[in-house]
Simulated assay, not measured.
Amino acid sequence: MAKFEGVYVALVTPFTEDYEVDYKRLYEVCDWLIQEGINGLVPAGSLGEYATFSPEERAKVVETVIQAANGRVPVVVGSAAPSTKQAVQWVEHAKNAGAAGVMALPPINYKPLKNEILEHYKAINNVGIPIIAYNNPRDYPTDLTPDLLAEIAQFENVVAVKEFSGDIRRMHDILDRTNLEVMVGVDNLALEGPMIGATGWISGVPNALPREGVQLFKLAKEGKIDEALPLYRRQLPLFHYDASPQLVQYIKYMMELAGQPVGPSRPPRLPLSQEEYESVRKDFKRAVEIVHQ
């Protein structure tokens, strides 16, 4: 059985209208997502706007999510930071707070050499908590290729990879060349990924449509394609927003449409245009109409 199986929601962070973290709302959203059937929670990722947090905020966000989960589902904590030392400190904090694992990017500030990438993961591995390596060559300078992942996978605590390249062939190569669990990293492969062996999905849009995301992933994993396809195709326009640089604003607006408002995004992220919001609203309405039929 996979260690990180099913739909893990990459959490947004609720803010008040004056851009303070709304911890009470964060707790409520986590509780709602668990009641809707999601399989795990991932705080302090890019969708959660971790880079805008003070250290105190980041620690309290992680602790709030773990308290809200209360052992009902696993919590996997984002550990990205400018230096290996800082990343290790956040991994240690996650472990001490009771997290089930961490999601770990390679060095993020420049294009590192191979030996630097391996030393970075070695340092995180030494903390002693399960690790999901995070490959996101769209937004960061490093591409964790299947061959490189095979080397990273030699560290005993590296058990999975969040694959965000957007290329389904990468998942095939990783499954063929490594012993890692593969977790879909970009929402618009939520059908294809489980069909070919991905055991998990670290998801964005299921912040707003958790029950529908869980249903889609389960059907795809079970090979029930005739049932999965209508759900997938109607949600696919929403899934495409997850691969946009403005994914935070898009998904927060989807949550508002779903009756789960979470406030604004922190600057430098600003509100989108009315045309963009209208596009999301139309796509959301279409998705909800089909899944509730």
Rank of each mutant, 00 (worst) to 15 (best):
224 K>Q: 13
201 W>K: 01
217 F>D: 00
176 D>I: 12
199 T>K: 00
240 H>Y: 15
251 I>L: 07
192 E>A: 12
205 V>A: 07
173 D>R: 11
201 W>G: 06
253 Y>D: 04
192 E>I: 10
249 Q>A: 12
207 N>P: 02
185 G>P: 01
208 A>S: 08
243 A>V: 08
209 L>D: 02
204 G>F: 01
260 Q>A: 10
220 A>T: 12
182 V>L: 11
199 T>P: 04
199 T>R: 01
189 L>Q: 08
251 I>V: 14
271 P>W: 11
223 G>W: 06
265 S>P: 14
215 Q>D: 11
273 S>M: 05
249 Q>W: 12
256 E>N: 07
193 G>N: 06
241 Y>I: 10
194 P>F: 05
213 G>P: 03
263 G>Q: 06
261 P>K: 07
212 E>H: 07
231 L>I: 11
228 A>V: 04
206 P>F: 04
227 E>G: 14
176 D>W: 13
230 P>M: 03
255 M>N: 05
204 G>R: 07
174 I>F: 03
274 Q>I: 13
246 Q>S: 09
235 Q>E: 15
265 S>I: 07
265 S>T: 12
175 L>Y: 05
277 Y>P: 04
216 L>D: 00
263 G>H: 07
240 H>R: 13
228 A>R: 02
196 I>D: 02
265 S>C: 10
247 L>E: 09
268 P>S: 09
209 L>N: 04
178 T>F: 07
272 L>R: 08
261 P>N: 07
253 Y>I: 04
268 P>G: 10
187 D>Q: 12
275 E>N: 13
198 A>G: 06
179 N>W: 11
272 L>A: 12
225 I>S: 08
218 K>G: 02
240 H>S: 13
259 G>L: 06
275 E>K: 14
250 Y>P: 04
279 S>H: 08
278 E>H: 13
182 V>T: 15
208 A>N: 00
219 L>C: 04
191 L>Y: 10
206 P>N: 03
196 I>T: 09
222 E>W: 08
254 M>E: 00
191 L>C: 15
215 Q>I: 14
262 V>K: 01
261 P>H: 04
261 P>S: 05
255 M>A: 09
185 G>A: 10
264 P>H: 14
270 L>P: 08
251 I>T: 09
234 R>K: 13
189 L>W: 00
228 A>M: 00
197 G>K: 06
212 E>R: 03
275 E>I: 10
254 M>K: 05
219 L>V: 07
191 L>R: 10
215 Q>T: 15
190 A>K: 05
251 I>C: 05
259 G>S: 07
234 R>D: 03
233 R>Q: 15
256 E>R: 11
236 L>C: 10
231 L>E: 03
267 P>K: 09
230 P>N: 00
266 R>S: 14
260 Q>N: 13
219 L>W: 01
239 F>Y: 10
183 M>K: 01
215 Q>E: 15
228 A>H: 02
199 T>M: 07
243 A>P: 08
